[in-house]
């Protein structure tokens, strides 16, 4: 899932302080799971903002709404009838949702309410870690299901480098060396032969190096 973190309330206050009427718009998908932008977080932010502005002597109307997704037009259409009445929308969706909302509603400023961080997993409640960088050419079949692009600080495809010591990465004593994890896993799978195969030069044009990407699937297009 896409992992996001809450923005400080002060930062959101700064964006909306001149508005009289705003909508806090949550998303029921990834940001709900990582407890940054779901229905509950919408309620907390709206309540905090209402009290903050009331305390400042400003009677701001703050409405709450949470959509199934903000990265799909059909769900964003659900606010078509009400969007015009707001001076601004604070979207608690990931960067994709914020942008897609802005694209659908041209005349209303859309402000982000979270910082979108990475594609990751919930290791435990309150701890999310990166697992994928969406490079567009998955190599997991050859690396024991552990991604060298996202788990190795240098994104090495033939690692580890000299900075790996006692299974940890040189950039942090708390960060496991991705390649040590791969070797351990390949050993456990009895697939160390895979480790001996040198990775050819990776085509990074499917990563960000090729500019903004798109997936076109004619088979599912209507």
């Amino acid at each position: 899932m896409i992992v996001a973190d809450k923005k400080p309330i002060e930062e959101i206050v700064e964006e909306v302080k001149d508005c009289d009427n705003i909508l806090i718009l949550g998303c029921n998908e990834c940001v709900t799971v990582c407890e940054a932008g779901g229905k509950k977080e919408v309620g907390i932010l709206a309540s905090a903002l209402r009290m903050y502005f009331l305390n400042q002597g400003k009677d701001m109307k703050i409405d709450e709404r949470t959509l199934e997704r903000q990265c799909d037009q059909e769900y964003l259409d659900e606010i078509r009838d009400i969007a015009d009445q707001y001076d601004a929308i604070v979207s608690l969706a990931c960067g994709v949702g914020v942008q897609f909302t802005a694209e659908q509603y041209h005349s209303i400023p859309i402000y982000p309410g979270v910082n979108t961080c990475f594609l990751g997993a919930t290791e435990e409640r309150g701890l999310w870690t990166e697992r994928c960088q969406a490079c567009g050419q998955c190599v997991l079949a050859r690396t024991g299901g552990i991604c060298p692009v996202s788990r190795c600080a240098k994104r090495l495809l033939n690692g580890p480098c000299g900075g790996s010591s006692n299974g940890m990465c040189e950039i942090s004593k708390e960060l496991a060396c991705g390649w040590q994890l791969i070797v351990n896993r390949l050993e456990a799978l009895d697939k160390m032969d895979d480790y001996e195969k040198i990775f050819p030069i990776k085509d990074w044009s499917t990563d960000r190096a090729g500019g903004p990407r798109k997936v076109v699937r004619e088979d599912v297009q209507i």
Binding site: I9, A48, N55
Partner: peptide, 8 residues
Amino acid sequence: KILNTIGV
């Protein structure tokens, strides 16, 4: 923490 931030 939230209450401290919003002045309550």
